[in-house]
Design a protein around this nucleic acid. Sequence first.
DNA 1: TTCAAAAACTGATAAAACTCATATTTTCCG
DNA 2: CGGAAAATATGAGTTTTATCAGTTTTTGAA
Lengths: 233, 233
Amino acid sequence: MKPQAPHCQSCQFKDSSLFKQCHLHELEELNESKCFNSYKKGQVIFHEGNRPLGIFCVYSGKVKVSRMGSDGKEQIIRLAKKGDTLGYRSLIDNTKYTASAIALDETEVCFIPAAEFNKLVDENVKVSTDLMKMLARALGDTQDKLIHLAMKPVRERLAEALLLLKSTYQEEGKNPFSISISREDLSSIVGTAKETVIRFLSEFKEDGIITTHGSEITILNPEKLVKISSMYD
Amino acid sequence: MKPQAPHCQSCQFKDSSLFKQCHLHELEELNESKCFNSYKKGQVIFHEGNRPLGIFCVYSGKVKVSRMGSDGKEQIIRLAKKGDTLGYRSLIDNTKYTASAIALDETEVCFIPAAEFNKLVDENVKVSTDLMKMLARALGDTQDKLIHLAMKPVRERLAEALLLLKSTYQEEGKNPFSISISREDLSSIVGTAKETVIRFLSEFKEDGIITTHGSEITILNPEKLVKISSMYD
DNA sequence: TTCAAAAACTGATAAAACTCATATTTTCCG
DNA sequence: CGGAAAATATGAGTTTTATCAGTTTTTGAA
């Protein structure tokens, strides 16, 4: 039997999530309206083109947010981890999802219906202020990605992507950092072909920066990756 | 003598700007604290790395928001026109500007100090809601740019850039659309080298899609550009 | 444990875009 | 108006990255 999500009032993320500034009675109501779900690796949490019906809070696992090109090529826009909020942009902008969210691991997510989310945002200024800052930060991050995609060659972007994975998913005290990720997904983060990613990974291996065992990548020397990623900054 | 900005209460954009939902007394206060400025072509409105002290409302002219790479290559993140708001992301996120705003034409801008802006956002929920939507839209737009940069070849991105210029800057009834823009700036929108832009522009000219006179580009056949830009959508 | 499918890897070649060099045109300042 | 500086335009050659084809390794289920 899988562990169910705890009550919102005792959630691991109650002091760090978007709802960290909620009152107890708000958390109580949130808890009543939320809906807990599990997703296996590869399962779709929400799909490009659909109408958003609420937002998602990741409780455990890893999620990619990505868009599919007509040629079947995928571009990953964001990586989400436990504690992160998903799908809020479309809801606020009142548009269909422009990207899909897909579990990269066994992932647990709470769904919060639009009505409840909107109520909370309307009634609690602190929540709406935090939401605004979250949007501003996301915009800044996306602009950074845009700039790097435009200005940096693949080798540097790959180094950066590995550092992003590390900074996003490294658990406290787990050193060195390891992650299991397909070369396909990695290439969709970097914005290049998977063969190109593989070639540069081989180079990084030769330089002792990483090691791999199957799809598992271990980062031995993050400092070198920092150097590579900011070669021309 | 240059025309000064009118009072905020009679501003051309009082019903379409970020402040469209303000009360009269709020517009009055806004008017008191605002500061009107003119910029010649090429002049910097705010500069990458500086701390934001307020936000900017474009009253007339054209503005590019761009970041400079260490190799001197520029990437344009956004094009702003009259009625647009500039510099709000950094202010909300409480970070230094990550890009610069530069006048592309003779441009007039109102500066609104951070204190006044924050007060308005805090006191008027409608303003903060609109601001939130503006951020959400900007995030969506930037994600689109990212996807296109990753997935579309230069020819398609150039077609898209020309359509962006048209949809942003075409004045009511002025047909066909013409704009004076350096190949350098155009390449900084597309994210490519200026020679590459020039080559594809020549191709578009041969196909009768555009004509040029010096740096002036006239779009004769926007439909063909739409087709080219979405070749693989 | 075995075996088949999937994924990682490697090599060869092709395509896209960049750089550099240079010619031509436009701009604009005196 | 003339001429220098700047910008546009074009060509050749190189670099980067993508594509395709094939081999090896890993993975996961029977």
